[in-house]
Nucleic acid binder design. Structure first.
Lengths: 159, 159
DNA sequence: AGAGTCTAGTTGAAGAATCAACCACGCTGC
DNA sequence: GCAGCGTGGTTGATTCTTCAACTAGACTCT
């Protein structure tokens, strides 16, 4: 039992700020999106990832990776989005284990309608507080942290 | 209808990293804490804030502010912590609207037991990835963002 | 070809978060 | 001294998330 290395003042500042952002930011974006279109930030992210994918479809596991979610969580959400007509499930032609999630026209229309407002919200709530240098620093630091949490994370993929 | 200002490459990197951290970090800490003591990161935060408060008690609204939560969320959680014997509710002596949450001896023992492991987890999952300069930059940037999200946030209080 | 193992995904139940409605108290101004 | 408004807090319904259990197809090794 050696004494743990407690956080120093700056570590504590960084940690508290991160935890606070972590609760405040998604909450703010969630309520914005919920009033704009009855969906959560996570729902939005799923639709956005599909809309940016080639052919506007992705296997469930790839979609889960790109939205940092468990397959279970994704499966439930896709079921919900499917009921709203925004997403379809289809079997993969060459591997019967795989399900692909496809963005429907209606789903595409939804996200196209929501995107400008959402980007403005991200700016207003977050980016507008930062200088160009801050943005660079945050990208660098953020990617380091992501790498530590998940060294195979998709945002770190070269390409 | 003017064209929205889409994110540039660095803004997108910063934003994606933040969102990813935001889902991965609490999830990792939640599972650690859950195996260590059947509580969530939010439960832990509530106990920690009480343990650091003078007299080990705080009004519900102050506790909500310090854990960045809604009063509703906090109320549900305090009810749960109360059932486990870690927290007590008491009426405020001079303002009958106010409820104060008090950390019990048992609650204090719980958090004292959990804290060293939790600090190690925070280091292992997060701080160890960063240089001293990174920590400073993150503290600076993080506090800017918190200030934008909630200009009265307690972590920004002088002293 | 069959057993074992791994990968992909789904499901149901249980616990947690949010939202809106609500109650009780305090403060202000008349 | 009481009407009206703001504050502090709780509650219950609904929605979300997680967890564990499970199905089914693919791969490997013999």
């Amino acid at each position: 039992m050696t004494e743990p290395r407690w956080l120093n003042a700056d570590e504590r500042r960084a940690w508290l700020a991160l935890v606070s952002i972590n609760t405040l930011l998604p909450a703010a974006l969630d309520t914005k999106l919920h009033t704009a279109g009855k969906l959560s930030l996570f729902d939005y992210t799923v639709l956005a990832m599909l809309s940016e994918a080639e052919g506007r479809f992705l296997p469930m596991s790839e979609l889960a990776a790109r939205s940092s979610a468990s397959l279970s969580r994704l499966s439930h959400v896709v079921t919900k989005l499917q009921k709203r007509g925004w997403v379809e499930r289809r079997p993969h032609p060459h591997d019967a284990r795989v399900t692909t999630a496809h963005l429907t026209e209606e789903g595409m229309a939804t996200i196209v309608g929501l995107a400008p407002g959402h980007v403005e919200d991200v700016r207003g709530l977050f980016l507008d507080a930062l200088t160009e240098q801050d943005v660079l620093d945050l990208a660098r630091i953020g990617e380091k942290v992501v790498g530590r949490l998940d060294s195979d994370h998709w945002i770190l993929r070269e390409n």
